[in-house]
């Protein structure tokens, strides 16, 4: 019996998904819509997640949505290097503002600041001021792993476990000269390494459609209730089927 078959029967698991199933305390909760994007059923402590920021409108909201559920659950969060983060938007997502610390301008010492934050807070999001040398990125990621904190980079990060990217943002509710912004549809993809190699995609509504449905305008009636729930879409570039365990029959063929 090959190792792959053992993996398929759930007898052994890959090191990279070690904490995905057991030990719920090792995983911080995330919003249901984002679950298909992450390989760990949540945010695994010690993981490094990147949220692509450049040229992707909607990524600040994605960042807030990513930490919202953990923050609501009582985790302490810090966001460094994002001047002008809209805390009202954070509060609307259910984040307790008393436990969301912001360091808007860490300046040249942002690495030291991030390291200090990783010592004490469960989720640390940081916007690197520019491209960072892989060695330094690795050092911070190791710090996060050692401390059991989640390091979220708002911007590209060499060696991130998962990189999330907003590929499309469509706002609904605004007409020409009338209406107001009500809800938006975000298309988010993820790719990464280890058990997250495969590209995955998700369509989500922010704020959720049901919150908006009650006061929907007549021209805004297109959204059916089915679109509230996120749909996991496996994109065409699923090249490494042998390494990702999806369904038993795939395993049978491989062995």
């Amino acid at each position: 019996m090959s190792v792959t078959a053992l993996v398929g029967r759930g007898l052994v698991s890959r090191a990279s998904e070690r904490d995905g199933r057991g030990g719920a305390d090792r995983v911080l909760p995330v919003r249901e819509e984002l679950l298909p994007l992450l390989p760990w059923q949540g945010l695994r402590r010690g993981a490094t997640v990147a949220v692509a920021a450049e040229g992707a409108p909607g990524s600040s909201s994605l960042l807030l949505a990513l930490i919202a559920e953990a923050a609501r659950d009582g985790s302490w969060c810090a966001v460094a290097g994002v001047a002008g983060l809209g805390v009202s938007a954070a509060a609307e997502l259910g984040i307790d503002l008393g436990r969301l610390a912001l360091v808007p301008r860490p300046g040249a010492e942002w690495m030291t600041v991030t390291a200090a934050l990783l010592d004490g807070l469960e989720i640390v999001a940081v916007r690197p001021p520019g491209p960072i040398p892989p060695k330094l990125a690795q050092r911070l990621a190791a710090r996060a792993k050692q401390r059991g904190s989640v390091l979220i980079s708002y911007g590209s990060w060499a060696g991130a476990d998962v990189t999330l990217r907003v590929t499309d943002q469509t706002w609904h509710g605004l007409g020409s000269g009338r209406g107001r912004l009500r809800s938006r549809e975000l298309a988010v993809t993820s790719h990464g390494r280890g058990s997250a190699t495969r590209h995955r995609g998700v369509q989500m509504w922010l704020p959720a459609r049901e919150a908006v449905a009650a006061e929907r305008l007549p021209h805004d009636a297109a959204g059916s209730p089915a679109s509230i729930t996120a749909r996991a879409v496996t994109t065409a570039r699923a090249v490494t089927t042998a390494r990702v365990v999806m369904a038993p029959e795939t395993v049978e063929r491989a062995s």
Partner: peptide, 11 residues
């Protein structure tokens, strides 16, 4: 300003 609130407020 009606909800949803903007996620980035220019300082």
């Amino acid at each position: 300003l009606p909800a949803p609130a903007p996620a980035l407020v220019c300082p």
